[in-house]
């Protein structure tokens, strides 16, 4: 699975981010992660279902910060640096 993942841009990071977010929301099927290379640094844009954004961000952004930390660790395996954006 990781071989497949590594063929895409930031494959490990995308796989890790997707797993984390799907694991903490109430509606995993509504979760999407897409690569956005339009900015000066590539970003992973995360969208979640109605009402799930609060838990993904957490109190004072604590959960979002943890998600970024772990996803960036994964991205280092892909040899890329990325931002992670949480969108409505």
């Amino acid at each position: 699975m990781s071989d497949d993942a590594n063929n895409e841009f930031a494959g490990t990071a995308v796989a890790v981010l997707t797993h984390i977010v799907k694991s903490i929301v109430d509606d995993p099927d509504a979760v999407t992660v897409e690569v956005d290379e339009s900015g000066n640094r590539p970003a992973l844009n995360v969208r979640v279902g109605d009402g799930d954004l609060g838990r993904v961000i957490g109190r004072r952004g604590r959960t979002a910060a943890s998600i970024r930390t772990v996803t960036r660790a994964a991205a280092s395996k892909d040899d890329v640096e990325i931002d992670i954006e949480f969108l409505d």
């Binding site: 984390i20 694991s23 903490i24 929301v25 838990r55 959960t63 998600i67 930390t69 772990v70």
Partner: peptide, 21 residues
């Protein structure tokens, strides 16, 4: 991770996923 920071973040997320959810 450096100084266990990634592990601490993972523990945070496990708690959200298991306890809070």
């Amino acid at each position: 991770g450096p100084g266990g920071r990634t592990l601490n973040a993972i523990q945070d997320l496990v708690r959200v996923s298991a306890q809070r959810r």
